[in-house]
Design a protein around this nucleic acid. Sequence first.
DNA 1: AATCTAATTGCAAGTAGATTGCACTTGTAA
DNA 2: TTACAAGTGCAATCTACTTGCAATTAGATT
Lengths: 136, 136
Amino acid sequence: MKNKVKEILKEAKLKVTPARVALLGIFSAKCQPMSADNVIAKLKRTKIDNVTVYRTLASLEKANIIQRVDLRKESVYFELSNHHHHHFVCTSCGVVEKLPKCNVGQIISKSLKQSKRFSIVRSHSFELFGLCKTCA
Amino acid sequence: MKNKVKEILKEAKLKVTPARVALLGIFSAKCQPMSADNVIAKLKRTKIDNVTVYRTLASLEKANIIQRVDLRKESVYFELSNHHHHHFVCTSCGVVEKLPKCNVGQIISKSLKQSKRFSIVRSHSFELFGLCKTCA
DNA sequence: AATCTAATTGCAAGTAGATTGCACTTGTAA
DNA sequence: TTACAAGTGCAATCTACTTGCAATTAGATT
Ligand SMILES: [Mn+2]
Ligand SMILES: [Mn+2]
Ligand SMILES: [Zn+2]
Ligand SMILES: [Zn+2]
């Protein structure tokens, strides 16, 4: 698993540094969107600085290894890009559930055809906000 | 038009104050998502304080008169809730185009049926990020 | 293996958007 | 008209995030 992480970094032509290995380990272990704070909490016992976390998130995002997710929470969340999907978010307790499958592909290509000003779609957001059964 | 704004506020049981009337006027005039900064810029010549802008945005959002839009920009954007729709966003120049129609209703109800943990969807995001013809 | 160099890191300071406390003002219901 | 909860302005504060800079390190080159 650590080797897999190293492969991913080399593939992206990023230096294999402790911070990057640590962050990718965290993202691979937990299949949930993570904020910088979430990551920092997991790294409490290491000597990796908070600034390094922000800079590592930025480099991994730039290399398209992780992606931003808009959950309407206080801060930015990230996930591994390897398995594209969307989410339910409970606006009361904050719990997040993965949607099984991305079904908006057709809608996107149709929208693109109809658009006057746009020619390329590189990514999209699609998140559902509501109440989980516990909070409802 | 000013009367319409007052009606909207009374309907929502909000006091009709100069700040709320001003903000709703701005949102009604410009059919584009607006950040707090955008609004503040438009209010430069008035004596309405920046803090009041933030508080007014919050009260209008709570009353569901305006809604948050996630455009992956530096700050939060808002729009009138009265005509629900989604957007193309150019990640190079920032231009925003409205999508003609929201087509994700079916996907949402299907997702809800399949969900183990969620029972209510109150809102959703669906935005397309890419390049406009000028930037492409 | 030793050397080189650009990329990465840690620490401290800084920024920007947004929030809070509090005294004063105002909209509106009685 | 009066009463008072709601709204406002100003200053201070918070929080997520960024930047500058000197020291370190990954990985390429001898
Ligand atoms: Mn996810
Ligand atoms: Mn819009
Ligand atoms: Zn998708
Ligand atoms: Zn919609």
